[in-house]
Design a protein around this nucleic acid. Structure first.
Length: 397
DNA sequence: TCTGGGGTCCTAGGACCC
DNA sequence: TCTGGGGTCCTAGGACCC
């Protein structure tokens, strides 16, 4: 049997959250819509008034971005909204100035997760080697799939695209390439609803002209450092000797940058993985102070511990490292953690350890966020947890 | 007008052990 | 009295991603 060349696909759902919302509210198709922020009274009132007839809500009745007050960011914007310059991770208040009339819908993760499961089931029924990369993205190994090599993967990509659309009404974009790194870039070449095939020989013509930032793993910081050296495109990066990159970016990072620029990536498509940590965090509606808002902070803290405990129980894990995260009003972040002897998933035990962590961090500045994390996870056998059932400790805050 | 929430991985120093 | 290397675990921060 002849070894097949590796063919890896990256599939990215198009404007996923927004597209799922448009299935519920088809009357908003073509309008600027952004998804972000939490559910508010207005949203609930509207949904209640039109229960079971969501598609009949007149577009004019939807809340607008300009009416939003509070903290939050855009998670997704429809293509019509992107025309106004608004996009993912932008603050809602800033977006409101760019496109005040855009419709603002609250994030409904439960619904997106349902669609996520559905499109992934479709993929798995066609190509079984799939790596989950979040709600709206996967890598798929086409190499051994019957027909996976035809037209460089285009035939199989088309089949998957059509099958997902038939099952969900949603569109996606797919890139197929010799490895994950290039496939990830390729899936962006023809968005939305596109397919891009990249062959090994296409590196110079199709990859090198791209900005370094397009490489998955090069973020704003590394990009700035590269720019400072006059490296703007992936071609610029490829032109630097490996030794030079190692000298300026360190042994591991330098070598990785060089490999990435030359399109080298041997990472396998990983079908299963164990979680490393679970956490819950919340940004307050207003900045809180450890002294004057002590009671409120204590309540929030306890709730976060309970939520993490619930998450651990639901997924069947326990963990040994308990940590907190806080973000001050000036956006500075501090973390503290503590490793305990016995792994736990018990809310009171988590609360106690996290409370100890809180004592080790300065609490003079106002806070905007508090988080609780449990790490060093291991599968939970289901037995009783350390501390479980004991009476709750008095609030430490 | 500031900037969500849930993650992973890497680095680097110190403790501690052999 | 001076001086070794590993190796592993823990902790804090930071970069990055979806």
């Amino acid at each position: 049997m002849i070894a097949q060349p590796r063919r890896i696909a990256h599939l990215d759902m198009d404007a996923f959250y927004a597209s799922v919302e448009l299935l519920r509210y088809p009357q908003l198709t073509g309008l600027p819509v952004v998804i972000g922020g939490g559910r508010r009274q207005h949203d609930d009132a509207l949904a209640a008034a039109y229960a079971g007839r969501l598609a009949e809500i007149p577009p004019a009745a939807f809340p607008r971005l300009k009416d939003y007050v509070g903290r939050g960011v855009i998670t997704t914007a429809t293509y019509a909204a992107r025309q106004f310059g608004v996009g993912s991770a932008m603050g809602l208040m800033k977006a409101a100035r760019l496109c005040p009339e855009a419709i603002l819908l609250p994030v409904d993760f439960a619904e997106y997760r349902r669609y996520s499961r559905r499109f992934k089931e479709v993929i798995l029924s066609i190509a079984p080697v799939m790596e989950d990369r979040g709600v709206d993205e996967v890598y798929i190994d086409f190499t051994q799939v019957p027909g996976g090599q035809r037209e460089g993967g285009r035939v199989l990509a088309r089949l998957i695209q059509k099958s997902i659309h038939d099952a969900t009404g949603l569109t996606c974009s797919i890139g197929v390439a010799p490895n994950k790194l290039i496939a990830k870039m390729a899936s962006e070449f023809d968005k939305p609803n596109g397919i891009s095939i990249v062959q090994p020989g296409d590196l110079q013509a199709r990859i090198w002209p791209l900005a370094c930032r397009k490489i998955n793993g090069i973020g704003p910081k590394t990009n700035d450092r590269l720019q400072a050296h006059g490296i703007h495109t992936i071609g610029d990066l490829a032109a630097r000797p490996r030794d030079w990159l190692v000298a300026h970016f360190g042994k591991a990072s330098g070598a990785w940058l060089h490999d990435a620029a030359w399109g080298r990536d041997e990472r396998p498509v990983v079908t299963e993985s164990e979680p490393v940590s679970m956490s819950r965090e919340t940004t307050f509606e207003r900045d809180l102070h450890a002294v004057s808002d002590k009671a409120l902070l204590g309540e929030i803290f306890t709730t976060l511990c309970q939520q993490v405990a619930q998450d651990l129980a639901a997924k069947g894990y326990k963990g040994r490292t308990i940590g907190i995260k806080l973000r001050y009003a000036d956006f500075q972040t501090a973390t503290r953690d503590q490793t305990i002897d016995q792994p736990t998933r018990d809310a009171a035990t988590i609360r106690r350890a996290a409370g100890q962590c809180l004592k080790r961090v300065p609490l003079t500045k106002r806070l905007r966020l508090l988080g609780v994390r449990v790490g060093k996870l291991q599968p939970d056998d289901g037995g009783a947890q350390a501390g479980e059932g004991e009476t709750e400790e008095p609030l430490l805050l």
